[in-house]
Design a protein around this nucleic acid. Structure first.
Length: 469
RNA sequence: UCCCCAGUAGCUCAGUCGGUAGAGCAGGCGGCUGUUAACCGCCUUGUCCGUGGUUCGAGUCCGCGCUGGGGAGCCA
């Protein structure tokens, strides 16, 4: 399995392909961006990268050759087209190199080009998010992102799941998964209606709308027709969260399975998580080696361990006991009924089980209305998957399929059942047990790459106060 | 939103006790028998985040603000 090695144009082989050839293809033409220029007395070396892989192609230019005349125009960052013959490299560090006779500058650079042939900090690179994909780190991150996004679809498609596009614009503002961004075409300077009163009825959709915080509710509707479905799309939260783990716009994967209970939900989450880790190990080895060296040492061993491990399972009640028995003092007290804090979750996954951990069956007061009430009347069939370093990476539950119980839970949560009539209809007619979960794609990428800030695994991050690029 | 830390050359950073700013890299010029973020020599580069204050004198001390980072809450 090694997708992405074929080029779509025979006259522009990718550097990735060129570098892995067994024999010289003879004369070729290569296009890409210059990473470094090294000048010798009669010869110069360019490292040319086209984004197809981490490695750059070494281009050798004889100062006396025609290409040598163009050389003074080439600096770090320039876009070039090079023609010449592929030859075995006499130097160490690369097998092949391109002995250039033609060098064309497609896009010159000047001395103000901000990227240098040295390491930059991620904070600086975030300020030039339009240029950072040209760096080793972000090249690697976004190649992994692309490969894993494809693997997400492969996983579900191979298992017969239907891919459903749930709406981006929604009128559900009662799910409680977070603050919503408003979607409106009303004139902010001259809104209709009386002062101090919003006239949503006059708005584009005739009611108050916003960007989705989850595709789950619509996903459930499809699960009750296609049995196994998944969504994979952008999600928006207008929370004023300023952390390395939150973004206002992120991508979420949400499978939903009919005829599944919480145990089946966990089983799928575990299989899915392990599948993606294996794909990363098998198909992104070059990138992982880079992360191992420059981002997070021990990464590969951790991923290999996870790929082989059976994930631990623990109920919320057992988790509370473990924390109380640990003898540790936590900033937040541990008692049945209060939510697990970050410090508690990290202790459980990093010290108690030292690996991925499902915590299940939380007190009903802590969780959303749609989670199925357990027979004890105290807990709901919810699960969170906790992993070291990142914390909560998956949240899911078996859904409440009993109409009366669901309506009662909605009222208890301060929701008006009538506002979600269409959702309740699935329980009214042909209801069935079902379960699902949500995986934050960026959080998974953080886990797999070792990158510690969510802003560095999404191409153009949106966070409070920042929507540039 | 709360708590903590930081902001000095294009980048990474040093700057002692308050005495008017420096190194590496980048850039320019020159050298070098084929380099590997090459190397060697010379040269250029500053609103010390902004603002107000203390002081004979502030990059340094104090207040306020802005930006960035870490942590918390919320969550994926």
């Amino acid at each position: 399995m090694d997708a992405g090695t074929k080029t779509w144009r025979h006259d522009r082989p990718r550097i990735r392909e060129i570098l892995r050839l067994e024999s010289s293809p003879g004369r070729i033409s290569v296009e890409g961006w210059v990473r470094t220029v090294r000048h010798g007395k009669g010869v110069a070396f360019l490292a040319v990268n086209d984004g197809s892989c981490l490695a750059s192609l070494q281009v050798v230019i004889d100062a006396a050759a025609p290409a040598g005349a163009t050389l003074p125009q080439v600096g770090t960052g320039a876009c070039v087209r090079v023609r010449g013959r592929m030859v075995a490299s006499p130097g160490t560090g690369q097998r092949w190199e391109l002995a250039a006779d033609e060098l064309e500058v497609l896009g010159p650079v000047d001395e103000t080009y901000p990227l240098q042939k040295k390491r930059h900090g991620p904070e600086f690179l975030r300020e030039i998010a339009h240029l950072r994909p040209r760096t080793n780190l972000f090249g690697a991150v976004f190649r992994v992102r692309s490969r894993l996004a494809f693997a997400v679809h492969r996983f579900f498609q191979e298992r017969g799941f239907l891919y459903v596009h749930t709406p981006i614009i929604t009128a559900n503002d009662c799910e409680g998964a977070g603050e919503m961004f408003r979607v409106t075409t009303l004139d902010p300077f001259h809104p209709p209606g009386a002062a101090g009163q919003a006239a949503w009825g006059e708005d584009f959709f005739g009611e108050k709308t916003g960007l989705t915080v989850s595709g789950q509710l619509e996903g459930e509707l499809f699960a009750m027709a296609f049995a196994d479905i998944y969504t994979f799309g952008p999600t928006f939260r207008a929370e004023n969260s300023n952390t390395s783990r939150h973004a206002a716009e992120f991508w979420m994967i949400e499978p939903e399975m009919a005829f599944a209970d919480l145990a089946a939900d966990c089983a799928l989450a575990e299989e899915f998580f392990r599948y993606l880790v294996k794909v990363a190990l098998q198909e992104c080895a070059e990138e992982l080696a880079f992360f191992e060296e420059y981002v997070a040492s021990g990464l590969t061993a951790r991923l290999e361990a996870v790929a082989a491990a059976v994930f631990e399972r623990m109920t919320y009640g057992e988790a509370i006991e473990q924390l109380q028995r640990s003898g540790r003092t936590f900033a937040f007290p541990v008692q049945w009924g209060s939510d697990l804090q970050s410090e508690h979750e990290r202790f459980l996954t990093e010290h108690v089980v030292k690996g991925p951990l499902f915590v299940t069956d939380y007190p009903v007061e802590l969780k959303a209305f749609y989670m199925r009430l357990n027979d004890d009347g105290q807990t709901v069939a919810a699960m969170d998957l906790l992993v070291p370093r990142v914390g909560e990476i998956i949240g899911g539950s078996q859904r409440e399929e009993r109409l009366e119980v669901l309506e009662r839970r909605m009222r208890a949560c301060g929701l008006v059942p009538e506002s979600l009539r269409w959702y309740l209809d699935t329980r009214r007619w042909g209801s069935c047990p079902h379960a699902g979960f949500g995986l934050g794609f960026e959080r998974f990428l953080m886990y797999v790459t070792g990158v510690e800030n969510i802003r560095d695994v999404i191409p153009f991050p949106r966070t409070p106060g920042n929507a540039r690029f």
